[in-house]
Design a binder for these strands. Structure first.
Lengths: 330, 330
DNA sequence: CTGTTAGCGCTTTCAC
DNA sequence: GTGAAAGCGCTAACAG
């Protein structure tokens, strides 16, 4: 930078002004600086810039999800990226794998690199997150609502309502014995979805058979086993509701293997690519909407930290594709 | 940091040593510094650190893909992230959308933030990339080989071989009229795969009917139209090879719509989630392997920039699932 | 073992 | 309009 300044015959401050497109530089001088920069192959160093700048912004944000390779997370990520690009910001990613230790490490790692904001899919209040907030990092919680975390916006889906609707839909199809297959109960969305399931049963005035409820299905094998057990029971369910996309898929595999895929009604929470081709009915949140909304909120906060805390709840949409429309056999 | 130093009654350099776990500090002093840091809520600023450090490393890398939401890209991303984590590095992402302008912007944006290395899925030599190399940023080209780009490692799959095998396989199933549906011919992988298709035909001593070859299928509609046209022709193909995952999926949809999905043989390039449930045979590269290998090479280069240039070619695997095993009707 | 000093590349006063 | 100087938070070199 000093070299550019001396080659252009100007002061170092003027180079800075030109590089940042700031007003107050004669056009001719700006031109001279630009050509000097090009000649010397000069490149602006944003890290040094943000160190000295009054606002201390790095124009980068961090996104922590469960797994970037999960299609739901990937869709959120992409939507966030698009918003970030519009704000000239870059996106740093991290997969926390539902692991509190990894998550803490990631938060520390990201804040140490001075990201302007953080979008987090998490279930619990970690010290480091509160810390980050206090140090002025904007935070938006996505897809999960964290009780008791102040100064943090959240963007979630209406899990309960979506689930209640699914129960109603199966009830209308004649089903009374409806199984529930869900994820780890620590996960907030899993809790909400199960609560919605219970509420749905209460609303239709039906007795919920606890033997048809399975939690903790965090692997393909566990889900397969659960389906096999349910189907082998004395009075098996006539319909299944699954509370997460991976579980839904595992169920499809197992039902197919058992030759029951066209007999048992099935509705899954979360849409997924190719669900249309497989004919799987789903309760679909909109990950792009979620990501976009979250990123919008984040940048609003970054630009104006006095915004009041806000919690956006986005609706789900039921998409009938066949599996949820299988009626109970008379 | 100065505050921590004075509270602990030590010099600022000692704080730095403690924070970086450097040797040469008495245990008692280190303890004092740590508690002072905790008391003041001190946090290490990695951006300032890397500005001053001798190696100038930021412990962050950039990954530029077509679209982070594409399952193939997402899998690569995840593999890269895992390797990066082992190297205490963070991952910055960008979706270039096959757009040279966006790609250039991303490269500039990333290098301006001083990433240590760049993993890029790109088809052409952009000035910015060469520039980045010259300024000492390590670069690995992934899934594409860029002709004439020096000092850049590459990790690709054996597209030609995979494609030749697919042609052979269909030939063995009795097929002679095999259609090819491919992506934009600018894309290197599309070129290679088509070349493999042609080679396969040459090897089996068969005449390739140019009317059965369609390029430029970069949207769902274009692919649907191509399938409809091919099927409506006087002598339609008895088998189809598609050169990319999205095209494969579009073909499945259209074949299903036409009621031909169990009659026409079909092999797709690239595996995709749920291909097993749909019974789609594929030529499968391994995106996790690709990502991991690329990241390994990148960090090897970052740690030792004198490494000779290397080009790794990974094999594909044919996965029979039914659609590729449909024999020609007698 | 520890402290002092210089300076990474940049932006921001504040004078001119 | 422009330049000189100070300093963002940190590490490296050297002296003690």
């Amino acid at each position: 930078m000093r070299d550019v300044a001396s080659l252009a015959g100007v002061g170092i401050a003027t180079v800075s002004r030109v590089v940042n497109d700031k007003p107050g530089v004669a056009a001719a001088v700006a031109e001279r600086v630009k050509s000097a920069a090009a000649q010397l192959g000069y490149h602006h160093d944003l890290t040094a810039s943000s160190l000295r700048r009054a606002d201390r912004r790095t124009d980068s944000i961090g996104v922590i999800v469960g797994d970037v390779a999960n299609p739901f997370s990937a869709a959120i990520l992409r939507a966030v990226e698009d918003v970030a690009t519009r704000h000239d910001s870059l996106v740093l990613i991290g997969s926390a794998e539902q692991d509190a230790i990894r998550e803490k490490r990631l938060i520390r790692s990201l804040t140490a690199r001075r990201v302007d904001g953080l979008i987090v899919v998490s279930d619990h209040i970690s010290e480091e997150l509160v810390d980050a907030r206090q140090r002025g990092v904007a935070v938006v919680s996505v897809d999960r609502h964290i009780e008791g975390l102040t100064g943090v916006d959240s963007v979630t889906t209406d899990n309960r309502r979506g689930m209640r609707e699914a129960v109603h839909h199966l009830y209308d199809g004649g089903h009374r014995r409806i199984a529930y297959l869900g994820d780890l109960p620590e996960i907030w969305t899993a809790q909400e979805r199960f609560a919605g399931f219970v509420e749905g049963f209460a609303a239709i005035g039906c007795q919920l058979d606890p033997r048809l409820v399975r939690h903790n299905l965090h692997s393909e094998e566990a889900t397969h086993a659960a389906v096999r057990e349910l189907m082998a029971a004395d009075s098996p369910p006539t319909a299944i509701i699954s509370a997460q996309n991976l579980i839904t898929i595992s169920i499809r595999r197992e039902l197919r293997a058992l030759g029951r895929d066209s007999i048992i009604a099935h509705i899954g929470f979360d849409d997924f690519p190719l669900a249309d081709l497989l004919g799987v009915s789903v309760i679909a949140p909109n990950p792009s909407d979620i990501g976009r909304t979250a990123a919008d909120r984040l940048f609003a906060r970054i630009d104006n930290s006095t915004e009041p805390e806000r919690h956006v709840v986005l609706p789900t949409r039921y998409i009938p594709r066949g599996s949820g429309e299988i009626r109970r056999r008379p």
